[in-house]
Nucleic acid binder design. Sequence first.
DNA 1: TCGTCATTTCGCACTTTTCCGAAACAATTC
DNA 2: GAATTGTTTCGGAAAAGTGCGAAATGACGA
Lengths: 127, 127
Amino acid sequence: MTTDTLRPLVGTLKALAHPVRLRILALLRDGELCVCEVAEVLGLAPSTVSEHLTGLRRTGLVREWKVGRWVHVALAEEAAARPVLEALWPLMAAAREELARDRAQARALRCETCDPDGCPAPRSKPA
Amino acid sequence: MTTDTLRPLVGTLKALAHPVRLRILALLRDGELCVCEVAEVLGLAPSTVSEHLTGLRRTGLVREWKVGRWVHVALAEEAAARPVLEALWPLMAAAREELARDRAQARALRCETCDPDGCPAPRSKPA
DNA sequence: TCGTCATTTCGCACTTTTCCGAAACAATTC
DNA sequence: GAATTGTTTCGGAAAAGTGCGAAATGACGA
């Protein structure tokens, strides 16, 4: 009776409709991160972040790949929903301070983990 | 701790993330309708449609005004979230057949209600 | 004034989402 | 092999979303 052809789009919009997931997407604009770094920046349990990332991956908004023990995440350039995401950035202006704080923290983490003890950020591009 | 500045945007995305509300927005692209016409086309209880419209109005995506006994609804041209909505239309391509059916039914209703028995569609533009 | 009709609000049942910690997996290091 | 570490899956609890019919509201018309 209803419009199931709208389901993929609705799925994408649901994936976008959460502050944590928007913060993750904004973080990834600066480049890839590993799951533990995202969890650290957001101050959430790794399992929670993992579940949010699963949602984003299901809609094709991000891609993930393993690097040793770590799972790296990045924005998927070729995502069908990319135009929606692009339309979103300007509307995040009201949150730019908070988002900038997230980004600064991620930047710090990235440097910190260049030493062998942390996530060794090889930043490789997979297929 | 979290990003409450993202709340308005998240609210907009949540408002968009439902097939019924997307169908309503698509319907309104052809022009204003009254609530009972929307309910008729979608085959839903008036109370359900009313609640969906309340959500859309809260985010500023639609505007409503009274015309006699009826409440007319239209897309809000000046909505802050309008760019997101515009980015959405192309992604609704997969549903264009169902949406076209909705629109045809609405068109029929609009004509039918030009006689004094139904909703008398004055189609006036309020402030 | 009373009845009718379009709409909204309310109460309720039901489903989905969200978050966490515990346990299970996976890959590395000792 | 055993311990460690990053990640995911699972179970469950709390919160939010969804849809309806019944009742309340508001406006028109007889």
